[in-house]
Design a protein around this nucleic acid. Structure first.
Lengths: 222, 222
DNA sequence: ACCTTGTTTTGAACACGTTCGAAACAAGCG
DNA sequence: CGCTTGTTTCGAACGTGTTCAAAACAAGGT
């Protein structure tokens, strides 16, 4: 492991990342070999493994990039005030940003699904990316016209992130041209979530919501 | 591919499956090599590949086995009449049945998450297993005291299957001893679903449910 | 200058999943 | 019995991700 990172080492490292991203983009994840990445970066195979524990770790760079792009692309959507509109815009912008990678998104996804992998969106290693994404949904809630019980308001961003993960899951399996079906899903689900959340102020639904919150908390500790 | 299956060939085939399952059970999926499976079955490496297109295909046998065990283990739970009780029992019995495989369940899961893989629960190849599982949830609904709009009643089993998939996802990531957290989730979520579904008869909620159904249908065609 | 210590680089080597051409086997037919 | 056709078995060989011991390099300290 590189403890004291010299300037030159950092250059080598970023060179490997750049090479990997270029090749992933061109030919997909599985088809891109570590040897090809090393060649493209102008280093030996062993050097690639000196900087990265394995092929998987190179995906993280990809994730980080998409997350940043998503945050930027979602910005315009956050000028609306209606919660449903905001949510729809934020979810849609992800589909836009991720579109170029849809072809081999599944190859990434396979690794992400492994719970033992640091690439899993639930892993500790993904915490920064996860929190950045959750922050985006927190802004979606807080800048909106939505009126809510404070307890639910606090949990909502994380629940929306979960919804986002669900959309991504759908997206990965979506073979329709230009991911039309995912867009249909987002356009339909956003207003539904809006209306559902507003319903939680009804007395009949209130008790249900409270129990959901209790369950969420007991799961978090467990 | 074996077109005309002779009796001896069928024996070789099942021998390979048995060997694979035994080794998976003992050492997990990743650690079990195709060479070891072939050895254990007393055939050559090439023979294993003559019968199975790859290591992945051997997982399907595992899935089928669990599905059958689940259906059997869920039977007692279906003697209850309250929908919430029935649902809880069915979901819980899966956790019981799958418990021995929790250790390497994630290794299977990784392959299942690949949308291009036939092992994906959404793939055409998985249709039989998926429908068998959905049938279980249809029974859960139909034998219960649940009163519902016919339209929703028709869609509910598939939605419950989706919930089941969600529970499995949670289960895979659950590192608590004896999967306590997953059991907490199931025990908590079953009554919540029960109450939520019953709420759909309220006039205020009715319109929401109708829109959900419309969305589901438009997604199915797309 | 030389040694020491730590970092970076290298390519050979390993084990694995998978492919493939060729051999062995079985069955029907003349 | 030979011959043909189709099935089954085999193991060598390929390309892959990954590991590792050794070399090259850099920077001080003496």
């Amino acid at each position: 492991m590189p403890d004291k990172r010299t300037a030159k080492a950092e250059l080598t490292r970023s060179g490997i990342v750049t090479a990997a991203l270029r090749l992933f983009r061109a030919g997909g994840y599985d088809a891109t070999t570590m040897r090809a990445i090393a060649d493209e970066a102008g280093v030996s195979l062993g050097s690639a493994y000196y900087y990265f524990s394995g092929k998987e770790e190179l995906i993280q760079a990809f994730y980080d990039q998409i997350q940043v792009e998503h945050a930027a692309a979602a910005e315009p959507a956050l000028s609306a005030t209606a919660f449903g509109e905001r949510l729809r815009g934020v979810l849609e912008s992800y589909v836009d940003v991720a579109a170029p990678y849809h072809g081999f998104g599944g190859q990434f996804f396979r690794n992400a699904a492994d719970p033992t992998s640091p690439l899993s969106p639930f892993s500790v290693e993904s915490t920064p990316a996860r929190e950045a994404s959750t922050a985006l949904f927190r802004r979606t809630v807080e800048g909106s016209d939505l009126k809510l019980a404070p307890a639910l308001r606090e949990e909502l961003p994380e629940l929306l992130w979960l919804l986002h993960m669900g959309v991504v899951l759908f997206w990965v399996h979506d073979r329709s041209p230009d991911q039309r079906r995912t867009r249909t899903l987002v356009a339909g689900v956003a207003p539904l979530v809006d209306r559902t959340v507003r319903l939680t102020r009804l007395p009949v639904v209130r008790g249900l919501v409270d129990d959901v919150l209790v369950l969420l908390r007991s799961l978090r500790e467990g």
